[in-house]
Amino acid sequence: MTSNSSVPKKPLSQKRVDLLGALLQEALLTGRRHLHQFSQLTSLARAVESADTPAIDRVRFLTLLREIAADAEAQAQLDVDMFAGLLGGRMMKRKVEQEEAHQRKDVFVVDTNSTRH
């Protein structure tokens, strides 16, 4: 495997900005998906409430309402788990970095000329 050394590496701060941008993009897509599902639920609820809706259609609408709500709940749980996992991973990484920094502080470099035997 060869590496192309002419491709400049991104600094850590830019990688963090890129990661944050990707996370915000994912959050935006998630929000839009939930907004669409809530819009469907609202429309179905209005149709069920309408006096002009026949009883047979109300039963179908209620079934569809239940299915959309169950799907939205399952997707929301997946989203919560995903974002919690990302947050947990970030928190774990920060903890490891702090522990490594603490360990580096415990290591002393002593000039060999100043030691006594």
Rank of each mutant, 00 (worst) to 15 (best):
N4Q: 08
S5L: 10
S5P: 09
S5E: 09
S6I: 10
V7E: 10
V7T: 15
V7M: 12
P8V: 05
P8E: 04
K10E: 03
S13L: 04
S13I: 06
S13V: 04
R16K: 04
R16E: 04
R16M: 11
G21I: 03
L23D: 02
Q25P: 04
Q25S: 08
Q25E: 11
E26Y: 02
A27P: 03
A27L: 05
A27G: 00
R32Q: 15
H34R: 15
L35K: 13
L35Y: 14
H36S: 14
H36L: 11
H36W: 12
Q37R: 15
Q37D: 15
Q40K: 06
L41P: 02
T42N: 13
T42H: 12
T42W: 09
R46T: 09
A47H: 09
A47F: 08
E49H: 14
E49A: 15
S50M: 08
T53C: 07
P54W: 07
A55P: 12
A55S: 10
A55E: 14
I56N: 10
D57E: 15
D57H: 15
R58T: 05
R58G: 10
R60C: 14
T63A: 15
L64G: 02
L65N: 05
L65Q: 10
R66I: 02
I68D: 00
I68M: 00
A69Y: 03
A69K: 10
D71C: 07
E73L: 04
A74V: 02
A74Y: 03
A76Q: 01
Q77W: 01
Q77G: 01
Q77E: 05
L78Q: 13
V80H: 06
D81C: 00
M82P: 02
A84P: 03
G85A: 11
G88R: 08
G88A: 15
G89Y: 01
M91C: 13
K93Q: 14
R94W: 00
V96E: 05
V96S: 03
Q98C: 09
E99K: 06
E100Y: 00
E100N: 04
A101V: 04
R104T: 14
K105Q: 14
K105R: 14
K105F: 07
F108V: 11
V109W: 06
V110Y: 03
S114V: 13
R116P: 07
R116E: 11
R116H: 05
